[in-house]
Design a protein around this nucleic acid. Structure first.
Lengths: 166, 166
DNA sequence: ATTTTTGCAAACCATTTGCAGCTGG
DNA sequence: CCAGCTGCAAATGGTTTGCAAAAAT
């Protein structure tokens, strides 16, 4: 999955993801194991969207092998812990950082499959307004705009496009 | 999947879904067959969200059996034709009417899994504003608010709840 | 007559799970 | 030590596909 154009990553006074996870596990009487540490380290090492398969592949390449089963099991925990968020754009579930990253929404280019993040105050306001109208207690939202990104838009209307297709 | 609280269905001067589909197929040199007619008739007979499995089950009950394979193949066509829209809330893909129904967004109750539709002008405006900011040509959007619906909210805070759980 | 479609069953693919052995607290 | 975890391999469950027979133009 294509990387998103990143917003300014703000992780300053907060505790690091591993600690947040340890806390979560402690409360449930569960354990912070080596495979889990490896995963969380790798995931929060860079800010990008990924799916289970990419994670397994990346780790194997890096010589840090964690079984597919453990990857799936841990991803579920990280979502429950509020560290990751699920993104269901295709048949495979993608994940993105939730903890320590500003809340945002997405533009999805249907030509190149790029995902662009954006942050707009209005979205949150609108979510509250709509929820209020329906007596709904909102806990989250997802605003996804699909279309064509500037780059693809340019390529599309460019006179050289016809030639490119040959 | 739970039915959505319906908006006023507006299908007046437009041609019926089957005709729209026939047109789509004709352009591609494809055929409007009996199983396809059965499916589209059943789907547009009532306005509700459904998935492939429910569709197969419903039809079998009604004595109009269409194979699972054909159901899946036809659903894909109906989406391409702009008659249906996909809704990926869970592991199975749900579908809703797109053609002849006002554009809208969704509130998804995570307790009872109900889907409530809403229509808010602001959403469209916001989509255009954000797209403009990013030089993006929007062709569609999805605004999904997750949380707890009024009914579940009431049940949750009710003093009798603890007893219900026993 | 020719091309597309259907139904069946088998294949696929992402994800989950049972289990025996390993590990963290 | 003991509850919880891991890896493996097998199971699941939704969706897709190959193919021979059936239907549409």
């Amino acid at each position: 999955m294509a990387d998103p154009a990143p917003l300014s990553p703000v992780r300053s006074a907060e505790q690091p993801p591993v600690e947040k996870f340890r806390e979560f596990l402690e409360i449930r009487g569960e354990k912070l194991t080596e495979p889990r540490r490896v995963l969380i380290r790798h995931i929060f090492d860079s800010h990008k969207h990924f799916d289970a398969d990419e994670l397994v592949a990346d780790l194997h390449e890096a010589g840090r092998r964690v079984s597919r089963a453990t990857v799936y099991r841990t991803l579920r925990l990280l979502v429950e812990a509020g560290l990751l968020r699920e993104l269901r754009l295709t048949n495979r579930t993608a994940y993105e950082h939730d903890y320590g990253y500003p809340s945002h929404d997405h533009l999805h280019c249907t030509e190149c499959n790029k995902v662009i993040e954006f942050n707009n105050e209005e979205v949150r306001r609108l979510r509250e307004a709509v929820s209020l109208q329906h007596g709904f207690r909102a806990s989250g939202h997802r605003f996804l705009i699909t279309g064509v990104c500037p780059a693809c838009s340019r390529a599309r209307s460019s006179p050289r496009r016809r030639l490119d297709l040959i």
